[in-house]
Nucleic acid binder design. Sequence first.
RNA 1: GCCUCCGUAGCUCAGUGGAUAGAGCGAGGGACUUCUAAUCCCGAGGUCGCAGGUUCGAAUCCUGCCGGGGGCACCA
Length: 587
Amino acid sequence: MTNHEVLPLLGQVADSVSQAIAHARPELAGADPLVRRSEHADFQSNAALALAKRARTRPTELADALIAAVAGDRGPITRVDMSGPGFLNITVPDQLIWNQLAARLASLRLGVGTPNEGQRTVIDYSAPNIAKEMHVGHLRTTIIGDSLARVLGFLGAEVIRQNHLGDWGTQFGMLIQYLDEHPEATWHHDELEPGTSAASALDDLYRTARALFDADPEFADRSRRRVVALQSGDHDTVTRWREIVAESERAFRDIYDRLGVLLTPDDSVGESFYNHLLADVVTELTEAGIAVGSEGALVIFSEEVTGPDGNPIPLMVRKRDGGYGYDTTDLATIRYRIHDLKSNRLLYVTDSRQALHFQLIFEAARRAGWLTDNVEAAHVPYGTVLGPDGRPFKTRAGGTVRLMDLLDDSVARARAVVHEKDPDLPAEELDQIAEQAGIGAVKYADLSNSRIKDYTFDVDRMVSFNGNTGVYLQYAHTRIRSILRKAGDPHVVIDPTIELQPAERALALQLDAYDTALTEVGETLEPHKLCGYLYDLARAFTSFYEACHVLNAEEPVRGNRLALCQLTARTLRHGLNLLGISAPDRM
RNA sequence: GCCUCCGUAGCUCAGUGGAUAGAGCGAGGGACUUCUAAUCCCGAGGUCGCAGGUUCGAAUCCUGCCGGGGGCACCA
């Protein structure tokens, strides 16, 4: 096994057409060859149509010239025909296709390159609040962010995950004060019943404390003093706060483990981390004349965006009461990530409603000189998770949907579906399959919808074994593994002289395009394109499976088909892994 | 008011300049002595919100309009 990059056929064909363009019409050199997969051949190029006007000729004439130029080149193209108004239908030799597959099979990376090498990419995602339970609102950021971290890392980027925990704020004054006055309250993980989390217990206690804060002015006073104690570093208060953070993180980790996301405590860099930087940031922005006083507060007025009154929109650098909020923390954060982490790509995976906020943060960072042309900063927005009624997803009672409940529900439905299909499955195996299928279903449903749009959370649809679901892909993988097991998991050797059947050809071309699909995800930051690719791959395999028997075939056809099976299984497993979804060997 | 996202089959969604606009679900028909029928195959179903424009060519790009979501100072 090697790690050599295997250039996709599409790229090879595109290079060849580019050369043909430069050869036939030197003045058009460098033009896009517009090569795409085709229904009418292996590939097609639309270059003649697009460039005819610039070449001051008819598309068909330019197409003829390109065909002549391609013929004189020893490129990957075995046949090229003109069709319709000037499309070039391009066919590549069977042998070349087999060789591509052999090269990918021989590569640990499936021949995929590392186009993102040299990028140090910070991905900000998940960011739950300490002393609060993770809920449906954390689902998309966690799942999408994690998948992007995997894909970009695989493509060669140095990924720095940042879990920007909500671990700071006045609410901790109330909570700590309440815990102090109620030592009998149980909230540590080890004191709780199985199935409840410290985050859940703290969430409840916080609500109680909040009610008390509103009802009892003396408690409110003590809470406010506790906020001051926390901010000034009072030993006992900080110790208690740390304890709360640690217990909450433990609860988050249970969810992360279950979801199978990469986040670890090392990735936690919460809001509190930036406290010691805020004063500096404010000074710097003030001295630069970017932050200015307004109505007693210190703000940065946007030079690009205005509000309803027609006045520039401000970022709140320092509140009238002297406190710092979210805007200031995010300014300190972007400075830290650029100056200290030396990142040249910053991604913020958050709700689309924060678009304006990040636009303002990026603008301010640019004006401050932190964010330069060498650094890319992007908000990676996503839409809302909707319930069956088309409204933001809530429980029947109108409450927040806890993430753990949502996962339990999905796993339970998956369990029911699996049990119905195979009632004889031992309970232990059933549980294991249900967990993998249920979690995979939730993640896939989230990732397979286009990121920016809202999507409807529908458990029954997502655990279905039909259609574009995680379960379907997992199942496709197990079927292929089953064939390979029956064949004894052989070391396959491809005979490149065998003629390709249509279904084999379609599958092979799809396998060769994995690289292209991943690169596209790396550029657009849209994991649903990977989902779409894998679904198409699974369907191409199914067509192949129906049309071409593997185990009964004669050698050397059998060996080649086993190679197709092996590469498909590995690509499916690999792709699912980049989505953060497991690919079991049996279901 | 301004900004932004969305509008594609009955439903849920792909498709961002190319050939008859594609899947899944649902409804109809068919296929298990055959590598997992948890599957597959066949047919039905569309003024791509509306109207202009650019282009040889537009679901895709531009403009306007209609409808829906979201955002626009001391919460995060």
